[in-house]
């Protein structure tokens, strides 16, 4: 479902990724770990097609990223849910509107949007916050809203870049519980983190990146 073959990327002569090859099978939940500056975020940018690799091939959600025309990128992104450390919620919109945006972009009817939004809010235990604005919520709650927004469109792949980076232990556990629940429904998940506690006893695969190179691939 996610496959990188000999992927390299440089920025102004500085190597961000060097010859990285990895594979995450359909329905798996895998982790990418490594220190800051190891290339995790660059790898994610390539995966959600915000950037292109200098060399190598990337296959995600059944498409070869190199072959995708720029006009098809939005359509491919609809199959990829993305979660960030800084949430990227729209602070001038309510929780409902933030989540509904994913579906409005796809042209869903308002009735179906309502049903789906309430369903995902129930999954992340935040149904009672539907009319709140993001800045009135805690960090953990905001991250759960971000997750709800990314899964409401039922993507086949989910990418999470340091999803618990700013959260306490309780919230970490809650977020991981939600990820496991999503994964159990068949969504392939790739999580970037440098928190070892997060992937211990969870993942089948952990990839370790260091200075842009894949150092280790271990099965937990």
């Amino acid at each position: 479902m996610i496959e990188l073959e000999n992927v390299s990327k440089t920025f102004g002569g500085q190597v961000a990724l060097s010859n990285v090859s990895l594979k995450v099978e359909r329905g798996d939940m895998a982790f990418i770990t490594g220190p800051s500056g190891a290339g995790k975020t660059t790898l994610f940018k390539l995966l959600y097609l915000a950037d292109k690799p200098d060399t190598g091939t990337i296959t995600i959600a059944g498409c070869n990223a190199a072959d995708v025309k720029s006009s098809y990128i939005p359509l491919l992104r609809r199959n990829i849910g993305v979660v960030f450390q800084d949430f990227k919620l729209l602070n001038n919109k309510t929780v409902y509107d933030n989540i509904a945006l994913t579906l409005r972009i796809r042209g869903f009817m308002e009735r179906e949007i309502k049903e789906r939004v309430h369903s995902v809010l129930k999954m992340v235990n935040l149904r009672h916050k539907v009319d709140n604005y993001p800045l009135t919520l805690s960090g953990g709650e905001q991250q759960r809203i971000t997750i709800a927004r990314s899964i409401v469109g039922e993507p086949t792949v989910m990418l999470a870049d340091e999803p618990t980076g700013n959260l306490d232990e309780e919230n970490e556990k809650e977020i991981m519980r939600i990820f496991k629940q999503i994964n159990a429904k068949g969504t392939t998940i790739l999580i970037a983190t440098h928190n070892r506690m997060l992937y211990k006893n969870t993942a089948r695969k952990v990839f370790t990146l260091e200075t842009g190179q894949l150092k280790d691939e271990e099965e937990e």
Partner: peptide
């Protein structure tokens, strides 16, 4: 954000 969510 729109772009990340697949907006054309």
């Amino acid at each position: 954000v729109y772009k990340l969510l697949g907006a054309t």
